[in-house]
Write a protein that binds this DNA or RNA. Structure first.
Length: 457
RNA sequence: GGUCCCUUCGUCUAAUGGUUAGGACUCAGCCCUUUCACGGCUGCAAUAGGGGUUCGAAUCCCCUAGGGAUCACCA
């Protein structure tokens, strides 16, 4: 079978983390089976849909590199075919016009809640009366009232429900627009979707939507309802757990690869950590290995994965990311300095935006330490710094020679590296910790180094 | 409340009736070391509770508890 999957977000806001993971699963599953992965924007509710939201969704998908390479489907453009199906169901007697007014409906809703049974519209049995001919109506699907429906969900397993709990859902609104329940089914059929992979919050819908498919004699797709993502406290993921918008993580300095990898291992398990790498995952992914229980979003783990990726990525790629983000314009010398020091710098951060703190000493020409307490230390060691400065001034510039130069000073003055290291570090970087001093001195170059060592505090 | 689903270290998870219940993250300690990191090593830490079935249960069955989803002219 040729696999066709789809990611079908509704454009009512940004692309959130759960949606992104659903997209990843759809993408991976199609890729694994050399099938098609499609994206469909579910904008049946025009009031709640927006252009910005659509843009945000594409932005998120593009960032993760999982946008569809096929034409994006906009559900609202298929309205006519949805409406046609609604009337087809009506004609065949699988649906009926319901003239219930909203207050009448509200009364029924309260009653049905008390009885624990779905709303029964009196219009299911009634014949259309003349007096209602010109009144507003909705079209409801006639759900089977007895028997059971079973779905063999790839993730959730075999689940059976009694048909009596199914309500006669609205498939066409009074303004003649189709509801999601209808549109989704019709589009899935038109698009030839073979596997519906979506959030677990849609599981109940599957039992209702499948009735439409049966009435129309269409092919029933495979279902895979994946569990939702929760916050660390087990509650539904929300703002107070941190960012819920996928793209916020881009802004925070996470890499696309790390995000992909983390989202993937939230619910899907592989044999080795390496299997979560995109390339391997596209070969290994199976829906059968998706867990049934919801996973909790843990920023610490994301941080760990992100720093791993930061350190295995090509230096040039990370470099580009940072330069672009901070709009750095660096000369040749600064570029070389940054790239050389970058691997060491990256070992110290979780997100690449944290590197911003290093820009001052890395690129500022007239850099000096601004911390008052540290300045005091430099003042007390003025002589030492000056001496080392003059030694370095005479040094023929190479890592080897700089090292020898420092060692010579230590030896001649009966010191250890600990006696000069901290001072040099503060003078050169304004901080008490940094990468290896010899590399820093080498990359900063003779002039800058000596200037900083001689700065008058 | 009705219906459905879920429950292995704090977190992500492995273990298709027989394992000292494994790994990763976090945390703690040690080693490496010019600092901070990286890395290496060690450690803390789990089968929600109770009943069955079985020679043997994290695994199969039942009950209880906790959590979640859903119950729209939203998707």
């Amino acid at each position: 079978m040729d696999v066709v999957t789809r990611f079908a977000p509704s454009p009512t806001g940004y692309l959130h983390i759960g949606g992104a993971r659903t997209a990843i699963f759809n993408y991976l599953f199609a890729k694994k089976h050399s099938g098609k992965y499609l994206v469909r924007i579910e904008d049946t509710d025009k009031k709640r849909s927006s252009e910005e939201a659509i843009k945000a969704i594409h932005q998120g998908l593009n960032w993760l590199n999982i946008n569809s390479k096929y034409k994006i489907v906009y559900q609202s453009q298929n309205f006519n075919s949805h409406i046609k199906v609604a009337y087809e169901l009506l004609e065949k007697g699988f649906a009926y016009k319901c003239f219930l007014k909203s207050d009448e409906l509200e009364k029924l809703r309260i009653k049905s809640r008390e009885n624990g049974i779905p709303i029964k519209s009196p219009w299911r049995k009634k014949k259309e009366q003349d007096e209602y001919k010109n009144k507003e109506f909705v079209i409801r699907l006639k759900m089977p009232s007895d028997g059971t429906t079973t779905i063999n969900d790839i993730v959730q397993g075999k689940v059976t429900i009694k048909n009596e709990i199914l309500d006669d859902m609205v498939i066409l609104r009074s303004d003649n627009t189709p509801t999601y329940m209808l549109s989704s089914v019709v589009d899935d059929n038109d698009m030839g979707i073979t596997h519906i992979i979506r959030g677990d919050d849609h599981f109940n819908n599957a039992f209702r939507q499948i009735q439409i498919i049966k009435y129309l004699n269409w092919n029933i797709p495979y279902y895979a309802h994946i569990p939702l993502i929760h916050g660390l406290d087990g509650a539904k993921l929300s703002k107070r757990h941190g960012a819920t918008s996928l793209y916020d993580y881009h802004d925070l300095g996470y890499t696309s690869e790390a995000m992909f990898s983390y989202l993937l291992q939230l619910g899907w398990s592989a044999k080795n950590d390496e299997d979560y790498f995109i390339d391997r995952a596209t070969k290994l992914f199976t829906l059968e290995k998706v867990n049934k229980s919801p996973a909790k979003f843990d920023l610490k783990k994301l941080n760990n994965i992100n720093s791993k990726y930061l350190n295995i990525m090509k230096v040039n790629d990370v470099y580009k990311l940072i330069v672009e983000r901070f709009k750095l314009s660096l000369n040749k010398e600064e570029q070389k300095r940054f790239k050389s020091l970058l691997p060491e710098l990256l070992k110290r951060v979780k997100v690449y935006t944290d590197l911003e703190d290093e820009f001052d000493w890395l690129f500022q020409h007239d850099f000096f330490c601004k911390d008052k307490n540290l300045q005091l230390k430099l003042q007390n060691n003025k002589f030492l710094l000056k001496e080392i400065g003059s030694l370095l001034k005479e040094c023929e510039w190479s890592m080897e020679n700089i090292k020898n130069c420092l060692n010579q000073y230590i030896f001649e003055n009966s010191l250890t590296f600990k006696d000069i290291g901290p001072m040099l570090r503060i003078a050169l970087t304004g901080k008490t910790n940094s990468p290896d001093l010899v590399s820093i001195i080498y990359e900063l170059g003779c002039t800058i180094t000596v200037n900083r060592l001689n700065y008058k505090y």
